[in-house]
Write a protein that binds this DNA or RNA. Structure first.
Length: 103
DNA sequence: ATTTTGACTTAAG
DNA sequence: GCTTAAGCCAAAA
């Protein structure tokens, strides 16, 4: 465990339903710190349990797929999201259709 | 304990 | 549309 904040991020990430995506800033806000988007990214990077924490459902503010060092990287992440039913617009996820509304 | 770094975001050129 | 700059946060060195 890294910190309470990070744990919260993992918890929220696990709540993201299949076929939906959330932005780093969104998770940060739900965790209590709207400006901790970067910290959210760190939490994903230091992700202790990838199968338990679907970090591939977390994208940048504009839907761009960033990071993801697992498997084949970005391509794999994109493919996974499409397989779950997330709407895609070129190389970016269509947040207008597939962004998780959170609580 | 201090500095550096990074899977962010928004604003400005 | 792309690049640069600045702001904020947490983890790693």
């Amino acid at each position: 465990m890294a910190s309470a904040f990070t744990e919260k991020i993992y918890e929220l990430t696990r709540k993201i339903p299949k076929g939906k995506v959330a932005t780093y800033g969104q998770l940060a806000a739900l965790a209590g710190n709207a400006k901790a988007a970067r910290a959210v990214g760190m939490a994903m990077r230091t992700n202790p349990d990838i199968p338990a924490t679907p970090c591939h459902r977390v994208v940048a503010s504009d839907g761009s797929l960033t990071g993801y060092s697992a498997g084949y990287g970005i391509p794999s992440k994109k493919k996974m999201l499409i397989a779950e039913g997330v709407a895609f617009k070129g190389e970016k996820a269509d947040l207008s259709l597939s962004q998780w509304k959170g609580k």
